[in-house]
């Protein structure tokens, strides 16, 4: 493929933006609008599939299956009027992305993604959604904020960038040979080695120890910050607690 402007990709992203505009939550949901949105989404997906088919041999049917799942679920995350469903669909996104990572031979990353995202982050999200739940679907969940401008600002810009990047693929260094890939990402199989996991560990500990440490410090800071943000006023030992308001008995409460 030449470095000509990747019109199919632009088309795909424009169609996707169109679809999203229709699918965004709005005051009165019309079936026709929703249907049009889904149709546009399907069209966008088909065009994108076609465009990537043009680019060369595909990565495998599994990748496409999980990509479709991830995209549909992501659309539902941002369009579903109920936050709990958004969170559940996001779990689907995470699982689909984890599956895609497995097709990339990044098993450790995939499982880490599931453990951290699905196991910890999303559960916390669900927890907060449940705690801060309001009866019924409040209006701010049912109505999108400036869907037209948002779609243009977000999706079309991303599409333009993606299109430009893919158009200038000749600028990217060529991929390495499959045998080189196997040698560098996987250790030779022996009973105690852990393949991909060990490779990542070595990379993290030898090349990016500073980044790793900063990550740890950030986590600690975030933990302290979360505790500080969500604390309640607790009486400190030694400091006398505020006097109990016993005087109210007799005024607001009947004395016995």
């Amino acid at each position: 493929m030449t470095a000509a402007a990747p019109y199919p990709i632009y088309a795909a992203f424009a169609l996707g933006a169109f679809a999203l505009y229709f699918l965004a939550p709005r005051a009165q949901r019309r079936r026709a609008v929703t249907t049009a949105g889904w149709l546009a989404a399907i069209a966008a997906g088909s065009v994108a599939l076609f465009a990537s088919q043009q680019a060369g041999p595909h990565t495998g049917i599994l990748f496409y299956c999980f990509a479709v799942v991830a995209l549909l679920a992501a659309v539902r995350v941002i369009t579903h009027p109920r936050p709990v469903y958004s969170a559940v669909y996001f779990v689907v996104v995470v699982l689909a992305v984890a599956a895609i990572l497995i097709t990339y031979e990044a098993e450790f990353l995939a499982v880490a993604l599931v453990i951290i995202y699905a196991g910890a982050i999303l559960v916390t999200y669900l927890f907060v959604i449940m705690l801060a739940q309001q009866p019924g679907a409040p209006v701010y969940d049912r109505r999108a904020r400036e869907p037209f401008l948002a779609v243009i600002a977000g999706f079309l810009l991303t599409g333009l960038v993606a299109g430009q990047v893919t158009a200038q693929r000749s600028g990217l260094p060529p991929p390495s040979k499959p045998e080189a890939r196997t040698a560098s990402t996987r250790l030779p199989p022996n009973p105690t080695a852990s393949g991909n996991t060990a490779a990542i560990g070595v990379a993290l500990m030898t090349r990016y120890p500073v980044a790793l440490e900063i990550g740890g410090v950030l986590l600690l800071i975030s933990m302290v910050g979360a505790v500080a943000l969500s604390r309640k006023r607790i009486p400190i030992e030694g400091v006398p607690p505020p006097a109990p308001t016993l005087g109210q008995i007799g005024k607001e409460v009947e004395p016995f």
């Binding site: 499982v111 453990i115 196991g119």
Partner: peptide, 10 residues
């Protein structure tokens, strides 16, 4: 899998 331990954790 290489990551059997983590799989079960996940």
């Amino acid at each position: 899998p290489d990551i059997g331990l983590l799989y079960i954790l996940g």
